[in-house]
Design a binder for these strands. Structure first.
Lengths: 142, 142
DNA sequence: CTATTTGCAAATCATTTGCAAAAAT
DNA sequence: ATTTTTGCAAATGATTTGCAAATAG
């Protein structure tokens, strides 16, 4: 019972529970990847074909404002979304396949804070994306 | 004589030298900050009032393709540009003032490569921006 | 009941592009 | 002379918004 659903957390934060929000939240939670708005709309429309693009945008914005989802920019034009969990991670984008690899590195976390502090700042957030190609002998044909 | 101008480097790379490119390159080189396209257009128009927005976009794109300028995304909608020098640095965005602080951290550079390697990738690039507010007792009134 | 949310279509904003004229090599 | 670049204006693509009808609390 530790994990409240995205919808429940939004409700607890005061958001009204609508059928479209239910569907959008569920679609995002069921996404193992980092869908963009169109992908999310398509997935949510499997449950509610009448769902509008505007509602997806508005819902995602609301969830982002509540700090319940992360909005990412991975370099291509569109925003990508992901449910925000306690565990923090960053992303590496495979420039060959477009695949996104998540990783967590405590050393990196500490270093970011230390750098900000050195500059006289308190770290509030960051955006980090690594871009790389599979090293020889790994996943792709070289 | 070690430092070729942006324009010279573009010319050396085969780009045609036009008056508008001269003005755009000079404007970017004289910018101590990280101007967006509109700012750059405004600055360049001080020298050439007839300069078009499209030429600024096209020139920046060409310079970026030649790896002569960096294109940054600092979270607001627009792209920011900066002449690319040998020294590498990342950015911290002051969330209070919007000021951008540049920094370089060798430990961070090494760590990024190490993380990519651990995941089986060769690092090709990265985008990193830290967001923070001035720590108490520093630059701003708390 | 009253404030919020929805779908639609039109509006925005940054960026790109087609085209004919102008200019660089 | 040939190819590239320019300015303009129209096109694009992602995201936002005005509005009247629908709906959650």
């Amino acid at each position: 019972m530790l994990a409240l659903s995205l919808l429940d957390r939004a409700g607890a934060a005061g958001a009204k529970i609508t059928p479209q929000r239910k569907v959008i939240c569920r679609a995002l939670e069921c996404s193992g990847d980092h869908p963009d708005v169109d992908q999310l709309l398509a997935r949510a429309r499997e449950s509610d074909p009448g769902l509008s693009l505007a509602s997806v945008y508005r819902t995602l914005r609301a969830l982002e404002d509540l700090d319940l989802v992360w909005k990412h920019d991975f370099g291509d034009g569109r925003a990508r979304y992901e449910v925000r969990h306690d565990d923090h991670h960053d992303h590496l984008i495979d420039t060959i396949s477009g695949q996104i690899v998540e990783f967590h590195d405590p050393e990196l976390e500490a270093l970011k804070k230390r750098i900000a502090a050195r500059l006289g700042y308190r770290l509030e957030g960051h955006s980090l994306a690594l871009f790389g190609r599979p090293a020889d002998g790994e996943s792709q044909t070289p």
